[in-house]
Write a protein that binds this DNA or RNA. Structure first.
Lengths: 258, 258
DNA sequence: TTGCTCCTCACGTCACGTGAGGTGGC
DNA sequence: TTGCTCCTCACGTCACGTGAGGTGGC
């Protein structure tokens, strides 16, 4: 007594839909039918179906099963290929699990690049956004340095004040804060020479790096913070002329406003 | 200067199509557009896109990313789930690699159930088909026994003769071969008690097992072989009456034919 | 008649990729 | 005008799953 589609599927440990799918792909021959159109499967179909499901369970794509013939031949090139693919997949998944382990260990947000986990708790949302963007612009050595900075240099009072600085901060406050931040910035520029020329650590070019960094900083800080950053930058690089120019421009602005 | 779709995608290390896909799934907000309809992405979009690609790279499904909010929160339940899934996936793939290693080691056909690799070379195509089908009908202990039989009991002259037996084999040949095979079969029935009642090792029921086995055997052996098997079975189980009946039936058949 | 099986489309899933067909910018 | 970019559908991929809508068997 031949088998119905359901019986065949259950014998092979698969589903009716899968069997029909294999017919459509010409992996499995269609059997004779009864007068009413019902399919009648024979042992040959079962054997073939078992071959298909075995290979499919091993992870061989159906398209490859088709070209493997009956695959009862000896260990095929296709299986070697599959094995190599599996090796790669396993390695990739294990790397991911490694990253997840670090995330769990540090309770760090998943979106930070690897390595910043341990210092994530000391970072503001703005810091994190900047780091995410920088990691797309700078090379690994630069990111290493930034990580070092984050973990080794404690936030000063001035840093905290800077973070909290609002748009309406007055000029004296902005000037003082710029001056307070300058020494720390100068230290950084001494310790990390490349920061004077960040483009040198940007694989996609200095112009690209400058543009992206600028865009990020302008979006993430308010106007008062941007001025303070600019002041600290000018002081720490000894650009006194430009500092004088800035003060003059602000004088002019105030006069216009009043 | 805001970014175009392509620029944004490249900054984030992904593709234009992926970005558009995230829009369609409402994972990423659509930016303002220029008069000509071109999209203009800001830093906020880049930050969000980097979050999305990071999670997607970790293997979080996009639908889950959507419900994770900005996912900048601490290690989320979703990541624990993901980690557990990864653990399972890796284990499964490693099991598969283990099976592949056995296949390579024994140069055995992939479609045989695990364990039959080492004896595959001694098996005929018919043997392999039978084993594949039996493995869907009998439990592991029964399959273990069959493997033992295959590996420990060498093929006799009679076995080889049986395999080669064609439909036109004459009655004397059939009778002799049945008698030659009977002692081996009797040994099996002594050593493996359950073979007298194979249904006892069939998780899906004795009737199902009988039906499937019968179907398989009838399809894989020719009429002469089937008769020889029947003879050996009757002799080894001591069913002399039925053997006499068989001979009588064959006598009658010959008379009719002549 | 009822409930169950079998059949054949056709569309859905997942994360995009691949054109098609049209427009804008230089 | 040419070549390149951007845009929006619409369909394809992979291995089936999920109905829909209809028929046969008891």
């Amino acid at each position: 007594m031949p088998w119905s589609t359901r019986e065949l599927a259950e014998l092979a440990g698969t589903t009716v839909k899968a069997v029909r799918h294999y017919h459509k792909l010409d992996l499995l021959e269609e059997p004779e039918r009864k007068e009413n159109g019902y399919k009648q499967y024979e042992v040959s179909h079962l054997v073939r179906l078992l071959q298909i499901t075995r290979l499919a369970d091993l992870g061989v794509p159906l398209g490859r099963i088709a070209t493997m013939g009956n695959a009862d031949d000896n260990p095929d090139e296709a299986l070697r290929v599959l094995d190599a693919e599996l090796e790669g997949t396993i390695a990739r998944l294990q790397r991911i699990r490694g990253e997840l382990a670090l995330i769990f260990e540090n309770r760090s947000p998943a979106s930070l690049p690897a390595g910043f986990g341990p210092v994530a708790s000391t970072m503001t949302e703005t810091d994190r956004s900047l780091i995410m963007i920088y990691s797309r612009v700078f090379d690994d050595s630069a990111m290493q340095d930034m990580q070092e900075i984050m973990s080794e240099i404690p936030a000063t009072e001035a840093d905290k004040e800077f973070e909290a600085l609002t748009l309406d901060a007055d000029r004296a406050t902005r000037r003082q804060l710029g001056e307070s931040l300058a020494p720390g910035l100068a230290d950084l520029l001494t310790k990390y020479e490349w920061m004077r020329d960040p483009g040198s650590k940007a694989p996609r070019g200095a112009a690209f790096a400058q543009g992206t960094m600028g865009e990020a900083i302008r979006a993430l800080y308010n106007q008062a913070q941007l001025e303070v950053l600019y002041r600290a930058h000018l002081i720490s690089t000894g650009a006194h002329d430009q500092l004088t120019e800035l003060e003059a421009a602000l004088d002019a602005q105030e006069r216009t406003a009043s």
